[in-house]
Design a protein around this nucleic acid. Structure first.
Lengths: 228, 228
DNA sequence: TAGATTGTTAATCGATTAACAATC
DNA sequence: TAGATTGTTAATCGATTAACAATC
């Protein structure tokens, strides 16, 4: 089982998680080339840009249908829209944020998180000093009111930006409030019911991997960036 | 090639990246059980805790030697220390931060980043309004001075917390200043020389994967958290 | 000693890549 | 038409898991 892996127990024709992760990368590339004025791109050109094998790219897309024209390539804007739709980023996705500290403020201020259809609709904390303050557009509410607030909002995505010590309890509250997908920034392995998904973002883990390679790498060994 | 993959061109007995990523997870678990007063743990008990297969755990460790005692299990504190050493988290690791916005402030304030041997030793920005301000213990300096500052500090890890538009240019500056490992928070695919490693943290990517599964999941399909 | 659990090998599983007929 | 490039199948590669002899 890989870090950040999500495993449906029952599914036919399941799309591999690495494929889903790469779709977001393709969106970044398509965004970049579109800005450069390019309207059509081949899988070979994308390999050059993203460092992802052309066959891989075509195979990834093949899970979802046909997207290109033999001898021509892919229409950049069209492919961008279709991948966005595949990821369901073309419909409104409401999100709750718990934790109004530095990280919470950074997330609330991040445009990528209030862009297009991803919408941060409420922010919570348990610190009285933070409650009532503004976090971007949002007024910070007490975490104890998350269930009643979300009864109206109906958000199914929760972002967990609280200290490790509070993370499990807050996750449980989120789930009781209707959240079914959690983006967890706390360095802890959350216990959740089987119908709740968790993706972990762990800065320390990333740094460990970098440290390992930095020290392990004798002169002459070369490293390449994959992507992200 | 996977997201966040790092590929040494020349290496015998290479440790798989998924294994390295899991080592950080094992540290989290060991930390937790140690606090609960447990001194010895079996791979089966760890499977229960971390949701990572017991064989996987033993196999991961086998890349680095022998750690347990048949019939007994693993000594928690000892294993924690040894994994820490494997990841080179037992020696000082100096890091530069570029980008003193919300995210930079959150990172500078994060204890995990000034914990133990991971040391944030300098912070930079290009906004005159931010230069001279304090970010945690650090005074924000102009990004143009990164090379001269790092000539003294000798940090080899750089944390990139600037907007997408500035990310590539700043990465290039970091590398010129001696950085060989970059933790990138900008949603862009960095172009770097082959001896520089990049790990990407992409919140939007994580959310895409959550959105996909939220929408794709018909009633009756169940999901499990892997870990992180 | 008997029971438990490791480290490691072999089997399985799944993901990546190469190759190529189909097609623009 | 000839050249280019797709979508897909088959081959390769690597990671995960099961099984078990060795060992405490």
């Amino acid at each position: 089982m890989d870090a950040n892996e999500i495993r449906p127990a029952i599914t036919a024709n399941r799309v591999p998680t690495p494929t889903l992760e790469r779709l977001a990368t393709y969106l970044k590339c398509l965004h970049d080339v579109a800005q450069a004025g390019v309207t059509t791109i081949s899988s070979a050109a994308l390999q050059e840009m993203a460092g992802i094998n052309a066959s891989q790219f075509r195979k990834d897309l093949s899970y979802f249908g046909e997207f290109g024209r033999p001898g021509v390539g892919y229409h950049v804007a069209d492919l961008h829209d279709r991948i966005t739709a595949i990821l369901h980023m073309d419909v409104d996705q409401r999100m709750l944020l718990v934790g109004a500290g530095n990280l919470g403020a950074a997330l609330a201020g991040y445009t990528g998180l209030n862009d297009e259809r991803l919408q941060l609709v409420a922010a919570f904390d348990n610190d009285p000093a933070r409650i009532g303050r503004k976090l971007g557009q949002l007024k910070v509410e007490h975490v104890g009111s998350i269930a009643t607030v979300n009864a109206d909002l109906g958000a199914r995505i929760g972002i967990l930006a609280v200290p490790r010590s509070a993370a499990q309890a807050v996750a449980t509250l989120m789930i009781a409030a209707g959240v079914r997908a959690i983006l967890n920034f706390a360095p802890i392995i959350l216990r959740v019911p089987p119908d709740v998904m968790v993706r972990n973002v762990c800065v320390t883990q990333e740094l460990s991997v970098l440290c390992y390679h930095l020290e392990a790498m004798p002169a002459g060994h070369r490293h390449r960036q994959g992507e992200g």
